[in-house]
Design a protein around this nucleic acid. Structure first.
Lengths: 162, 162
DNA sequence: TCAACTTATGTAGTTAGCTACACAAATATA
DNA sequence: TATATTTGTGTAGCTAACTACATAAGTTGA
């Protein structure tokens, strides 16, 4: 018997435990950048890595690639622009679009960032060990895409009620 | 090659993926309560279940059991009190303490809530299948408690730099 | 017994997601 | 070609966690 009530709840508390772990890691990531004297936030690596690969993307394209809502992306990129890490220019062909790319400032610090991300990847790999956690997450996300947690639960309520 | 950039990032994006899954499930849980006509929020089940078991607890005790900060607990219980699901009384022995317990309203709807949570537990169990996901989470949380993600990463930066 | 410390609660302000709505630009269609 | 629809971006307002600070009540020890 542990004093961690979430563990006791078993499957019911899955979402809460996933949230607890991710919150803790994200918070620790924020501390790490601060410790290293960088004005970078934990979720920016997604945009950095994506734009390193794709060179120039619109808000909607970033939103689709990261599977996050476009208001979330706007909030992230506005901070990154303000801090000088992204360039933004209006698209010539389509006046609605804003095209984002990495700034020179970013290109200068990129080697340092890569070292941090490499070390972070190693840290997660050490934590996860030889387990197949990432494959499990693939499976869970695939199942959640097929049928939402609400749908699954409502179906179970239905069939339990028979 | 998938169009989900987070998957491509492998271990590096673990925290982001855990967040994405938990956010999705929590959001779906909110919709479910709404669909069922209940004015209950997704994270309240933790307090309901805990107080069902322990009868009467203070803010700090709830905070410890759920491993959440006390301001988070205050925010949750204030809403639950406002909605009539919790009773609060001042502790006689210790005037600083607020003692929380389940209200009659809660006791009346509890059977219905149990059905929902049972169905939700089944839903998660179906999603997780025969895997050992919960044990993996136990392991990861234990390792994170020993050494934070920041510490792990900084150590790796150090040793990579040699 | 009273000052210093500790503990329990509460408040303020931050970050990170989200949906719903607004609006402008592009495209499609009658 | 003019109107209607779609698409891309942006804003407002929501939830949920956190830390840091404030305050009040208990406890301890000189």
């Amino acid at each position: 018997m542990t004093d961690d009530f979430l563990k006791q709840l078993g499957h019911l508390a899955l979402a809460s435990r996933l949230k607890r772990i991710s919150d803790k890691m994200i918070h620790s990531g924020r501390e790490m950048y601060k410790h290293l004297g960088l004005d970078i936030e934990p979720n920016w690596y997604l945009v950095f890595k994506l734009l390193k690969e794709e060179k120039e993307l619109s808000v909607t394209e970033i939103s689709a690639a990261l599977q996050m809502s476009h208001p979330s992306i706007i909030s992230i990129i506005n901070k990154m622009i303000k801090s000088g890490y992204l360039n933004s220019r209006k698209c010539q062909d389509d006046g609605r679009k804003q095209l984002l790319s990495l700034s020179d400032k970013t290109k200068n610090v990129y080697p340092q960032l890569e070292k941090i991300w490499t070390a972070g990847t190693q840290g997660v790999a050490q934590m996860v060990g030889e387990t197949d956690l990432l494959e499990l997450l693939d499976m869970i996300e695939a199942r959640l895409d097929q049928k939402s947690f609400m749908e699954m639960t409502l179906e179970n309520i239905e069939s339990n009620g028979q």
